[in-house]
């Protein structure tokens, strides 16, 4: 299944929506800050015993223009991506413009045990990776028996 340069098939979108409905159907809890499907940027979250990992898929931005703030356990990511689209005229036709353009903001609730003073952020290949350490006292420790 493929699209032509001029027409786009909706089949794949429908299939994805079905998949998503199936997937969401299993998750009864909704977030107080719900996000619409296809929100920009897409975010993946991961957890390790010592840290929380956030991956935001923000291709084609200047890393310096990204604003990351953590207040208590809320992480806010804001920025703006302006696409330089050439003006359509007699010599230029825009056939597809699916890419997001404009200001964006995403808010993520972090676990309570994060240490906001230990945060690192890197931007590589269009992915912003934020790593936040957990507080040491809440990490599981193995106790040696003397």
């Amino acid at each position: 299944m493929y699209s032509t340069l001029f027409n786009f098939s909706d089949d794949l979108f429908n299939e994805l929506e079905n998949l998503q409905r199936h997937w969401v159907g299993r998750n009864i809890l909704s977030n107080i800050r719900p996000v619409a499907r296809g929100s920009f940027p897409a975010i993946n979250l991961g957890s390790t015993p010592s840290s929380v990992e956030v991956y935001a898929f923000v291709p084609g931005v200047d890393a310096k223009s990204l604003d990351i703030q953590i207040d208590k356990n809320l992480l806010t990511l804001q920025g703006e991506r302006v696409l330089q689209l050439p003006k359509e005229d007699s010599k230029l036709t825009v056939y597809a413009q699916e890419r997001f353009s404009g200001k964006f903001k995403r808010v993520i609730t972090l676990p309570d045990d994060v240490d906001v003073s230990k945060v690192s952020a890197t931007y590589k290949e269009g992915v912003l990776h934020i790593s936040i350490q957990r507080r040491e006292e809440t990490q599981a420790k193995r106790i040696e028996i003397q």
């Binding site: 340069l5 794949l12 979108f13 994805l16 696409l83 689209l85 050439p86 010599k91 230029l92 036709t93 825009v94 056939y95 597809a96 413009q97 699916e98 890419r99 997001f100």
Partner: peptide, 10 residues
């Protein structure tokens, strides 16, 4: 499905 922009010029 990667999101695209497609522009045609001469």
């Amino acid at each position: 499905r990667p999101l695209v922009t497609i522009v045609e010029e001469d």
